[in-house]
Amino acid sequence: MGKPINKIMVYVDGTEQSVTAAQYAICLASFSGAELIALYVVNTRAMEDLLKARIFLSDEEAEYEHDLEADAERYLKYVGELAAKKGLTIARKQRKGSVHKEIIDAIHDEQVDLLVIGELSRIRSRRDEFYDEAERAMRTAPCSVLIVKDEDRVWELYESLV
């Protein structure tokens, strides 16, 4: 019988919750020997919508896209450093498009068997249910999904890794 988990992908969006998820994914990879991928999606779909709604000018859209690419680099580098501190390597992937769709496509392309995401925002309106990208990814992912909670416990677990 093969390993239950061969490839773990953690979705990173710059929130504290996603950093906690990355720490947990690092712990899981350390215990299981699974490969580790960190994914950041630049939400160009939202920016296209803002351009269509005429909230953005075209040069504004380009400026924000550039900013978000820089954010992606920064957060993926940070997660890479978290893994390196524990002697692991993490493959950094940046994609552009609609967030939940890109997560699903990455799962297929990378043959991921476990998606790790941060704690979901509390649903406070009907709108949230429709538009929370992580929730949509969780519902439609073709692989198992792990939602990481309890930041303090995860931090202790991560810190205890040698």
Binding site: D13, A46, D49, I55, Y64, D67, L68
Partner: peptide, 18 residues
């Protein structure tokens, strides 16, 4: 200036409301 992600999300949410 360094918070384009939340800015884009909030603008998109307003666009949906509108």
């Amino acid at each position: 200036p360094d918070q384009s992600g939340p800015h884009v999300e909030a603008l998109a949410e307003i666009a949906r409301l509108a």
